[in-house]
Write a protein that binds this DNA or RNA. Structure first.
Length: 222
DNA sequence: ACCCAGGGTCATA
DNA sequence: TATGACCATGGG
């Protein structure tokens, strides 16, 4: 039995509005096609996006930004293309596992007909796809109303005193989803804003100083 | 010379 | 179930 956490919808909405007013729309997810978004979701695991862009550029230059091309490619050669994204041996395997699932399931149009919970369960069964990567794919490629939790999200909400610091992925995801209602556009923007905010003023060390949320969300430092 | 990045898997206790 | 090691490049 997972303890459910409740967030105040008004407070979370105020937090979202304040971040949006301060940072502006983030235009996530960068990517020409849903498949490119999915590739980015795997490659950006624990990796700076600037490095992912280089790897995607390599794939495109090799005419390999395509599920069949990636699935059929020699793994070592794929690793060479992915090198700037880091963990390139790991990611070559993960990307091929993902592409084989994607092709085996009939591609985007077939997958887009499946209900969200089915898609999520299948994504999580693919080697190398964990909760955050699965939810990136669901939200930013399939445009399903799923909120993406990451380290920034957990840190922000726990520093605001709204959730325990060790809250699990699912409890936090459901709490935010309930507080902000099922809304693809809002979930899209909110996650991007939390990342944007987290990598600038709310870095791990030192703790937030002069953060834009101090006034709006009651964060008083630590 | 550190620390960090848009995580996840696997072995071990 | 819960830690810890491991994966690896590039920027601040």
């Amino acid at each position: 039995m997972v303890r459910t956490v409740t967030l105040d919808p008004r407070a979370v909405t105020a937090c979202y509005r304040r971040l949006l007013a301060h940072w502006g729309p983030q235009h996530w997810w960068p990517g020409e096609t849903p498949f490119e978004v999915m590739v980015g979701a795997v490659l950006t695991q624990n990796t700076a996006w600037s490095n992912v862009e280089r790897a995607i550029a390599n794939l495109r230059a090799a005419d390999a930004l395509d599920p069949a091309a990636i699935a059929a490619m020699d793994r070592k050669r794929l690793g060479v293309l992915l090198r700037p994204a880091g963990y390139f041996n790991v990611k070559a395997r993960r990307l091929q596992a993902f592409c084989r699932w994607y092709l085996g399931r009939g591609g985007f149009d077939a997958l887009a007909r499946e209900p969200t919970d089915t898609l999520r369960r299948e994504l999580l069964a693919v080697h190398g796809v964990g909760p955050e990567t699965a939810d990136d794919v669901l939200l930013y490629a399939f445009e399903r109303p799923v909120f993406v939790v990451d380290a920034y999200t957990r840190r922000l909400f726990s520093r605001l005193g709204w959730v325990p610091a060790d809250i699990g992925y699912e409890p936090l995801r459901h709490a935010v989803e309930r507080a902000l209602g099922p809304d693809v556009a809002v979930f899209n923007e909110f996650h991007a804003l939390i990342v944007r905010h987290g990598k600038t003023t709310c870095r791990p060390r030192p703790l937030c100083a002069g953060c834009v949320l101090h006034a709006g969300c009651g964060f008083a430092g630590s």
